[in-house]
Structure formats: C-alpha cells, structure tokens
Design a binder for these strands. Structure first.
Lengths: 230, 230
DNA sequence: AAAAAACGAGAGCACTGCTCTTGACGGCCA
DNA sequence: TGGCCGTCAAGAGCAGTGCTCTCGTTTTTT
C-alpha cells in the first residue's frame, strides 16, 4: 500500500503542504482577511479551481492553518516549560509566559487567528479542540506540580460556591488544586493573554517600549496572585 | 448660515447617519468582514457609488463605527463609575469592570472592532485616539482617587528601574500614584480586558457558565493586586 | 439669471470564493 | 498488454465585492 501511495498520494501530500506553506506566508503578510485562494493558486502556477481538489473551501484551508497555529504555540510553550528544572516553579511559569508572548510577537497574524476575534462567518470545527489546549495544559501542570510540592501559599479567600461547577473544566487541568487557587490561576491566565493581546494588537504602541521587561514584571505579579513563592 | 444649511446639509447629515446606522446593524450581525458598502446601499435603495459621496472608502465608514464604538464603551464605563459614591473605591472599580464586560457582551462585534485583532489592512487614523482613552481614563481616575484617599495599601515591591520611562503615559492618567501601583494597575487592566476578550471571543464557551459571578470574582482578585481595600 | 458645486445613477474594472464541464494522465485489474 | 476508472489541472462562468469614471439633474452660490 505504501508502494501505491508513493506515486499519487505523495505528490498530493507535497502539494497540500505547499499550499499551506504559501497560505501561511500570505497570512503572515496580509492577515486572515487577505488570504486568497486565487493568490495561492497563482503563486503555485496553478489555476484557482485546482486548489479545491485539496481544500474544499477557504475555511478548510483556514482551519488547517489554525490547527497548525495551535500546535506551534503549544509546542513553543511546552518546550519552554520543560527547559526549566521541574521544581523551579516560578521559573517554569515565567518561561511559559515568555514563550507565548514571544511566539505571538513573532507570529502576530497567526496569534490573531487563534486568540483574536473570530473571523466573521467562520465556525471552528471540532478538529481544533484537541490542539487548542496544549498551551493551557502546560500552565495547569505547572500549577498542580507547584501545589503538590507545597510551593503555593494557600489563599485566605475561597471561591464563591456558585462557581463550584464552573471550575470543573479547570480541575481536570490542575488535579488536586483547590478551587480558590484555580480561580486565581484563571485570573493570571487572563492577565497573561490580555497582555499579549494588547501588545500584539497594538494597544501598547507609543505607550510601552520595554515590552519584555514590563511583561515579565506583570507576570511576576500574576505569579504572586496565584501564590507561587518567588 | 443655518438657513442655508437646512436644505442640503441637513439631508446629508441625515443620510450619513442612516448609513452608519445600517452599517452598524450589518456589523452587529455579520461582523466587520461582512460589512459591505453595496449591501448598505441596497438597503437604502441607493446605488452603490452614491455611498462614496458620504464615505470615501469602506475604511472611512469603518473608522466612523470605531469612533462610535469607543465613545459608546467609554460612556458606559463613565456612567457606571459615576453611579457609585465617590469614596467607594472597590464599588467604583467593580462597577466599571461590569460596565465594560456587559457592553462587550451586548456588542461583541463592535467590541471586536475596537479591542480585537485589528482588521487586515486597516490603519487606525489619529481621529480615534481622542475617544479611545475614555474608558481607561475612568480606571485611572478611580485609582488615583483611591491612592489620594489612602485607600490603597502601598505595595512591598517596587517597579524595575528600566520601566521608569514606560510608566509615563500611565502617570498622566493616574497623577500622584507611585510606579509600583501603576504597574499593578496595568496588570489588573490586562486581566480585565483579557477576561472580557476570552468571554466575548468564545474561549470560555463550554467552560464557564456563571460568567458574571466568575468575572466579578476575578475582578476582586485584580482589585487585591492593585491593593484596593475591600 | 448664470455659474458652480453637489448629487444619484449607471457602466465598467479588477478582484474574490466557488461550481461545473472538459480533456488528459496515471494506477489498477483482467 | 490492454482497457478502465478515478484523479487531476484547466477553463469558463456566476454572483459578489470595493472602487472609479462619466453623465445628466438638482441645489446652492454668485
């Protein structure tokens, strides 16, 4: 079966990959709205209708790029997290934060695709949910590791009772962690992506210059909120 | 001069307003990408080229909507902030937070326009910067009021020296407030808009149900970070 | 009343996503 | 080896978009 694949399926896989590569380049320069199937076809020397043999619609091509984006971001965060000693929880936290920020700054349009406003008329298919949690899983692991190791000072407050059910999805990512810490982690999470979004989408233009330093300071404050000893 | 205006300029103002109204409705249903000059013209019973007498390009129409959005959001936050007793700083903070969240949930596409990923190829003109700071000015005033009243516990840490210049823009919004508090406020600010963005853009779908309660809890934690006594 | 400015309508250009049909090529079974 | 079926690129075409230009008409100004 591999023999039969070699001929046709191999060139098909190659072309599919070439399409996504060109599309990703277009995405990086023009943004999601400027992604044009016809332009991709033109750059490949194909006629536009031929692209539809590989991607049934523009949204399908976009979906492929989104999944790639999730995986690329997730991989960057995973690598950063695993580069630190396992018991250096502040270090792992900061490394993961820097990873997502640096990836986002390097790939602003791809970041916009996965964490920005949803592109109009586009509905994320189920294929994406597997890859979309790779980054948050890293944060969850850091926090549950830290809690297990006693490196998180238990907060004085506790979460509102109404939120007991809502914490369910997060408990799976942070097993054993009490709800009060979970909600503090969620809050830090929103601060992280809120900052990155502000920076990538230009809200900090002409306001902040030392982006990295300011970001790290903010993420230290976020770690404080969680209770990670620094 | 008002007499001469009445004839032509009045119908012009009326038509301009009608165009933006229809465009805003289209924006609310289709999103920024689905905003079509031709569709607006069609709905007005005009021919598409006539629209260009009122807005030189699609981007200009979009800019008008963006400015309107900034003003609407800013007004909502201002009203919420002034509805509280002036010395109830946690109350003012929470009210302002709820205001931006509720406005964003009620007008997701408009929120996406002003706080989401920038629409491709669109460059925000200078006209917008006047209206864009109305909401953050409210936060700045709450915090500087609170600091002046001694209602903020001075933080133990201080900000990195490198960030002294970067804090400049924020100092104007929070006169008299020390840098350490400023950066805590910025961090809370990113947590606020990070949360709202997550909720509006669907990252919390199938994850959180009691949005309002969870949001308020997170904003209380943010107030803690700033040091606002609750 | 005459000149000037503003206006709506229409045609047209270049572009988009997408569909359908046509002809050619390549891998499979007899 | 020969036929056959599926896959493929190509082309034409449809409906839609932003935008430009011109042409009469209407309104304002001089």
């Amino acid at each position: 079966m591999t023999a039969s694949r070699t001929a046709r399926e191999r060139v098909r896989a190659e072309l599919t990959r070439e399409i996504t590569d060109i599309a990703r380049r277009q995405l990086a320069t023009e943004g999601a709205g400027g992604l044009s199937l016809r332009a991709v076809a033109r750059e490949m020397g194909m006629v536009s209708s031929a692209i539809y043999r590989y991607f049934p619609s523009r949204d399908d091509l976009l979906t492929a790029l989104i999944v790639d984006g999730y995986n690329a971001l997730g991989e960057a965060v995973e690598q950063a997290g695993s580069a630190c000693p396992r018991d250096d929880f502040p270090g792992r936290w900061l490394a993961a934060c820097h990873a997502v920020r640096e990836w986002a700054v390097a790939h602003p349009h791809e970041y916009a695709l996965i964490y920005g406003s949803p592109v109009p008329g586009y509905q994320a298919p189920q294929d994406t949910i597997a890859a979309r949690v790779r980054d948050v899983a890293v944060y969850g692991r850091i926090i549950s590791d830290a809690w297990e190791a006693g490196a998180i000072t238990p907060p004085a407050d506790h979460a509102p009772e109404e939120l007991e059910r809502d914490a369910g999805s997060f408990r799976e990512l942070m097993p054993g962690v009490p709800d009060a810490v979970i909600w503090r982690a969620v809050s830090a999470w929103t601060a992280l992506y809120g900052w990155v979004g502000f920076e990538v989408f230009g809200q900090f233009n002409n306001v902040i210059e030392n982006h990295r330093t300011a970001f790290e300071h903010a993420m230290r404050l976020a770690a404080d909120t969680i209770g990670i000893a620094q």
